[in-house]
Design a protein around this nucleic acid. Structure first.
Lengths: 153, 153
DNA sequence: TTGGATTCCATTGACGCCCATGATCCCCCA
DNA sequence: TGGGGGATCATGGGCGTCAATGGAATCCAA
């Protein structure tokens, strides 16, 4: 299996820890990254997370810019500076930082949403809204092409 | 682990000492540099800091300029002339010089911001502003390049 | 001698690590 | 085909360690 797919809802315990879904952990292990690399999504109130594959994308962006330049500083601030590497404990759990929880509006539950090369972490209510909107737009586009096409899983 | 990543806020004690985040200390140790190499950022009210890797990057940039040229003199003055090597005490703390604190507007707290091959030291309020701007610019740049292009596994 | 700085020691609070429990799913076997 | 057993996974909690910080003691220079 390649990449992160499907979605899972887990809850934070009293210490603020939350289990990464086993399916996602398997991908991360295969990816070889130690810990969980994540940063706030700019477009949505959610957290982007992943491993080496995600990091490589970032390096690709940075390698195009000369070191010590203003642009390089800016981009690396946005990508490295605001990102965090969460440690994963023996049971596959992470502790979300206050910054991240605030950005995503997370309190006691989170949804893990697979997006292929990365996944996102959402507060359940916000994801429900976003999901509805995303489906509306997606089906709108699909219906334009093929009026009676397939139902999603 | 790949260089300096994530950000940490620490406070100066009564003597003006501040702990370097343990994660950054680990990178510096691996890098092999004795002390902390730092100088005021060319672009921002912040301090650039790092070890041997940072020094190498600077040399690479300088090598692109003709020796004895005015440009070479200017740049090497800006980077080497004003730089300082701070001593790190047994607990992993440094004392920021008055020059540096003045440049960055640092009073009682600082943010350490990882930028991969180096990190920056900011006054918290100023970093908050810069961070927002950096994310705006960086993601604008990325979105321009790959609006809906190939998302592989 | 006095002020600044460096080294050493103490505190405390967070977090990393370990073990326990319960629930669910899957597989195997009767 | 249905039941039992094992494995996996999400979750809860205790405890030890280490990092961040504070402060005392020692050293050096003016």
């Amino acid at each position: 299996m390649h990449g992160f797919v499907s979605h899972y809802t887990n809850k934070l315990d009293a210490k603020g820890r939350v289990s990464i879904p086993a399916a996602f952990r398997a991908v991360l292990t295969r990816d070889g990254f130690e810990g969980l690399y994540c940063f706030p999504s700019l477009h949505e109130p959610a957290v982007d997370a992943g491993g080496n594959v995600l990091l490589e994308r970032i390096h690709e962006q940075l390698d195009k810019l000369p070191p010590l330049s203003r642009d390089h500083d800016m981009v690396s601030t946005a990508l490295f500076g605001v990102s965090e590497i969460l440690k994963v404990d023996g049971e596959g759990r992470v502790m979300l930082s206050d910054t991240i929880k605030a950005h995503a509006g997370i309190t006691d539950q989170v949804v893990f949403v697979g997006l292929g090369y990365k996944f996102q972490i959402w507060a359940p209510e916000r994801f429900a809204t976003y999901r509805a909107e995303a489906m509306r737009q997606a089906f709108g586009r699909i219906d334009q092409r093929s009026p009676a096409s397939g139902e999603g899983a």
